[in-house]
Nucleic acid binder design. Structure first.
Lengths: 143, 143
DNA sequence: TATTGTTATACTCTATAACTATA
DNA sequence: TATAGTTATAGAGTATAACAATA
């Protein structure tokens, strides 16, 4: 009866396609690299701490475009797994300086490799020119 | 100390930008149209039921690229709010035919208007040519 | 007063696994 | 055997509000 249901008018909604694409990418990462035990978001946090030792939650929140409480949740889960460690900031008593633990560093190394492989899966369907176009167009959406 | 933290190497990761853009769009819809009490996903479901009365969960799942259980959660919440109603399918005892209630139809009308306004916010930054490009490029990511 | 971090709380989306009923 | 729906359960991500400590 409904053999050929499609999005209909919804197909015209750009936001919906972006959500779909986002979902497809998330799903692929989870399916293919789930054994890492890290989501892409968690990898982003580890990656930033790795490249900016001493980074604070506020910085992570700003760079990754998250609420403070959301950042807290994320960071807390990684600390619980002993992938991150904290130390009070020397210069500002309100801030907390994060660092990777040895386990965190080791897992990040594996995760970076996964991200690069995954990124290759994602981008290999585009020409260099198309990739540049896509990045430029997406960049226009940032508020 | 970290005045100028940016994404660094992560900036090269296309997947991250798609996640960011997705977040930006979601946030804007929630902030601007939160009084509707509907998420974009929920609007999609209502929209599809509205244009395909009698549609079943399996169809929604396929078209919106969701798991059956995920679809169930979504549909159930809308039923609880009396925006959707169900009836057994005449042709297949396993299927359930969904319809909009009057409240659902009324809310959908408002939601469509919100979606179109939101879509205008999103797309007005692009030229017609750019929009076409973006759609084409995003289309390549669907598995 | 403003910023940083924290906690409590809540909601959406997502998915797996095991189950029932129907085809 | 396969499909449609259901339930229990779990986890990730998101955010608001209220609070303490520090600047």
């Amino acid at each position: 009866m409904f053999d050929a249901i499609d999005l209909g008018e919804l197909d015209a909604i750009l936001g919906l396609h972006i959500r779909r694409v986002h979902g497809t990418i998330q799903r692929h990462f989870g399916d293919r690299y789930g054994d890492l035990g890290l989501t892409q978001k968690q990898v982003s946090v580890l990656w930033l701490v790795g490249s900016h030792p001493g980074i604070a939650q506020t910085d992570l929140a700003r760079v990754l475009d998250m609420d403070r409480a959301t950042t807290m949740t994320l960071v807390h889960a990684l600390e619980k797994r002993a992938l991150l460690s904290r130390a009070p900031s020397a210069s500002d008593g309100r801030r907390i300086a994060f660092q990777l633990t040895e386990d965190g560093q080791a897992l990040l190394t594996r995760a970076k490799s996964a991200v690069r492989e995954h990124e290759e899966w994602l981008t290999s369907r585009f020409s260099a020119h198309e990739l540049k176009q896509l990045r430029t167009l997406l960049g226009k959406i940032y508020r």
